[in-house]
Design a protein around this nucleic acid. Structure first.
Length: 198
DNA sequence: CACGCGATTTGG
DNA sequence: CAAATCGCGTGT
């Protein structure tokens, strides 16, 4: 019973608009479970991509094989390859038929007891960037369409957070978008965190 | 079916 | 500042 209720809450959380989810994901726990074990991280940077009307969003080109997953109901992963070598992790949000997603741009890796790592990852294992964190978490297109509400392999957990200082600003790397979208403050990050990109 | 480019990262 | 590297969307 408790479990059912929890799953319902998680589903409802992802059915909110991408802008709301992007903001609320900051500070939450991202868990990756593979045969090698579990990796715990804290989400510290996100971006919202909202609908066909958002010219920065892949769905602005309409429904294609690639964007199909964004038309699903919130809670599944949208993962694609960019620049021929980097994977991007997104979480689909909102109701079905309204394509939107949150790009996970940065995480802070944690130890098994959920404390900041004494020795932050170096070189190949940095996590301050959407491509780097996918490399760190061994995320590729095998997890495209993955249902995060199953709470296996890849999912998000709510943890007690207080006094989070969240900053907002325009999204990165979307020069191709219409100015009205380029300027929208749909990037969110945790202030004063050494892992935030740039 | 050819072509151009991208929600990035890295090293010079 | 440019290279790496290939899937996807577009137009023929």
């Amino acid at each position: 019973m408790i479990r059912r209720k929890t799953e319902l809450l998680i589903t409802q959380f992802y059915q909110q608009d991408a802008i709301n989810v992007a903001q609320q994901l900051i500070g939450k726990l991202l868990i990756r479970e593979t045969k090698q074990g579990r990796l715990y991280s804290r989400i510290i940077e996100t971006e919202a991509y909202f609908g066909e009307e958002d010219t920065a969003c892949h769905a602005s080109k309409g429904r294609t094989q690639r964007t199909e997953v964004m038309y699903q109901s919130g809670g599944v992963a949208y993962i694609y390859l960019i620049y021929g070598m980097y994977h991007m992790l997104n979480i689909v949000t909102g109701d079905s038929e309204h394509p939107q997603a949150v790009l996970i741009r940065g995480i802070e890796p944690l130890s098994d007891d959920l404390q900041p790592l004494p020795n932050p990852p170096k070189s190949q294992l940095k996590t301050n960037g959407p491509g780097k964190l996918c490399r760190y978490l061994s995320i590729d297109k095998q997890l495209n369409h993955w249902d995060l509400t199953l709470r296996q392999q890849l999912w998000v957990e709510d943890i007690k957070q207080q006094n989070l200082s969240i900053a907002t600003g325009p999204r990165i790397g979307i020069d191709y978008a219409h100015p009205k979208d380029r300027d929208k403050p749909w990037r969110f990050w945790l202030k004063d965190n050494i892992y935030v990109s740039k």
